[in-house]
Amino acid sequence: MSPRRERREDFTSYYGRPILKEPTWEALDIAGYIFAGGLAGASSILAAGAQHSGRPGLERTAKLTALTAISASVVALVHDLGRPERFVNMLRVAKPTSPMSVGSWILSAYGPLAGASAAANVLGIFPRAGKAAGIGAGITGSAVATYTAVLIADTAVPTWHDAHSRLPFVFASSAAASAGGVAAALAPRAESGPARRMAVVGAAVETALSVAMERSGHLSAETFHQGRAGKLLQLSKACTVGGAVGLALGGRSSRLVSALGGIAVAAGSALLRFGVFEAGRASTRDPKYVVVPQRERLDAGRPASWQPGTGAGKRVAVEAGGGEATGTTTAPSTAGEARTV
């Protein structure tokens, strides 16, 4: 038992009630959305590469995958709204402080591009414009695949926020893995080399980074190992690693292995999002993930400040200044003596 664990036993709370509200989001909708967005964005990048390098089979597959995935993700997103009919309000303002607003604008750029390039490709019309749209979709796709990390990290949900510096990379690599995997499964084997490579490398990076994230040392990171989230993430790794190994070893030679490996990697990527999602949810249900780190911060004389670059995230010393200014809010602490729930 680590010393931290001991401390966790006797934190104070109000009848054990959560401090934070559990996210209102449905796992299927939002984790699904993040996965599908990642898949779409990375697929568009893949499609752009294929289009550029003259792999029409891969190009079509990736473009259709992107369109399908992004359509599904938008449906999921709208479905998750409390008032779906007010979806258009997403474009009412443009707020750099809101990842969801930024995301909406990205989506509204990316969606039509992905749609146009896919339509042009399938229908065989406006080839030039279609190609241009494909490039555009590829570039904006990179944003679609990564902004979702900011979307969930920019919350008070301990697990998500604590992971904010790693999460974009985890999601990016996972997006790459999923796009590569799906393409490896669906595209003609002859053209899908880059896809497999993308899947394998993506999976490797995804696994490495998520392991790092899950061992970050934040108290909240324990939610990655427990309960539903723990199971999902284990399964995710099994799929990802298994699929990647399969792809790396036999993807090139076997249609079946390529298909199974690709789908496994994609599934691993999806499970990762569901796992991360569940871990975050769990971290809002138990007040300790809020109380313990914050109490530690206070007890160490390092209260948070709203100014970027200070406070817990970076542990920049603010002792003197912060401590002075907040003298009134931090009467001598007697944590631990209070009632334990």
Binding site: Y14, Y15, I19, Y147, A156, V291, Q294, G313
Partner: peptide, 23 residues
């Protein structure tokens, strides 16, 4: 925390610039 209040909360958007950079 006795009252169910977070002892030292932070506005998450404090770290948003950093997050955007990482993204």
């Amino acid at each position: 925390e006795t009252y169910g209040l977070p002892p030292d909360p932070v506005v998450t958007t404090r770290d948003l610039p950093a997050m955007w950079k990482r993204a």
